[in-house]
């Protein structure tokens, strides 16, 4: 098991290294660079000025050198300078992380609160009207584009309350912040809740077919006790995994939701930085996202190993 840990760890590092190359190369394929954007923003196309900016930002140096500089800096905790703001990239990225993290946690909370109970109910009442309605509801959760849902919520909010929740810079106090993030979190979480519900349901059904459940039933345990004591507990393991993975993958949903609700988190910042060809920001943000995904996967594996003694790690 020790060697498995080491191996997993090395693989993680390797994956992140691969990602750093991939993102670095892909960004350089993007047509136009920051110098183009800057001269374009000024409405001029003077090649001399463009060259000056490119030189100032080090864009004229060989790609390998640029890559080396970035990675070298990363290992020292130096993320480089953001092209657009001309400030250290860390100063631009760091304040945005807590906002997205809070949003993710709230979305996750929302999706678990909805997803798990409904999944259990759906499984216990398999093939009843209730089950069908819940399944249709969860499928619709997977089908609604979250930006559309966001727009509808905004529309409804204006219609009924005459106002919309706009994220103000420094929310005054915890409650206000929760209030501001609640609706976007629900919009992002809706999709995950659907996913969690589906998984809870199928996992419950799987467990309920197992021999030990049948045994418990035949021994005269009540339905409720079987369903909730035996089945649910065993069914939750895969659910926990998916929750972990969803946590990392919610970033996808955040991109559009932060845009619709104008929340200054990392996801919207990523889109903005891509648009501005702000390589230092994009590179580091992508690495951050990859790091979170890889770490969460790792933790989920570890959790599995601890929780489910049946899994052996021989190799």
């Amino acid at each position: 098991m020790g060697s498995y840990l080491v191996r997993r760890f090395l693989l993680m590092a390797l994956t992140l290294f691969g990602m750093s190359i991939l993102i670095f190369v892909m960004l350089r394929l993007v047509p136009g660079d920051i110098a183009d954007i800057l001269v374009d923003a000024a409405g001029i196309a003077d090649p001399k000025e463009k060259a000056k900016i490119a030189k100032e930002l080090g864009l004229d140096r060989p790609i390998i050198e640029q890559y080396g500089q970035w990675i070298g800096g990363l290992t020292r905790g130096d993320l480089g300078f953001a092209y657009v703001s001309e400030r250290p990239a860390i100063e631009e990225i760091a304040p945005r992380i807590p906002i997205s993290a809070k949003l993710t946690l709230m979305a996750l909370f929302f999706s678990v609160i909805l997803g798990v109970p409904f999944g259990v109910i759906s499984a216990v009442r398999q093939n009843t009207t209730l089950d069908y309605s819940l399944r249709v509801l969860s499928l619709s959760g997977l089908s609604l584009p979250s930006f559309w849902l966001g727009l509808l919520v905004l529309m409804a909010s204006v219609h009924w309350f005459g106002t919309i929740p706009i994220y103000t810079n420094e929310p005054r106090g915890f409650l206000q912040e929760v209030g501001l993030l609640a609706i976007p979190a629900a919009v992002v979480g809706f999709r995950s809740s659907a996913l969690i519900m589906r998984l809870t349901r199928s996992s419950m059904l799987e467990v309920m077919r197992q021999d030990y459940i049948r045994t418990a039933r035949s021994k005269g345990a009540t339905n409720t006790s079987v369903n909730y004591n035996h089945a649910l507990r065993n069914a939750l393991l895969p659910v926990v995994t998916i929750i972990g993975i969803e946590a990392a993958f919610l970033v996808g949903g955040l991109i559009v939701t932060e845009t619709v609700f104008n929340i200054p988190g990392v996801a919207r910042f990523l889109v903005e930085a891509i648009r501005w060809r702000d390589y230092p920001i994009v590179q580091n943000l992508v690495m951050l996202i990859a790091f979170v995904v890889v770490t969460v996967n790792f933790l989920v594996d570890m959790a599995y190993m601890v929780l489910d003694p049946r899994i052996k790690y021989a190799d």
């Binding site: 691969g18 993007v30 991109i255 990523l270």
Partner: peptide, 24 residues
């Protein structure tokens, strides 16, 4: 396998976003 690991370390939309930007 390692390459697929790398590709799977980003959510679908993020990966597609970067790809779309790179391709135009």
């Amino acid at each position: 396998q390692r390459l697929l690991d790398v590709m799977q370390s980003l959510p679908l939309l993020v990966m597609a976003l970067v790809m779309a930007a790179a391709l135009g």
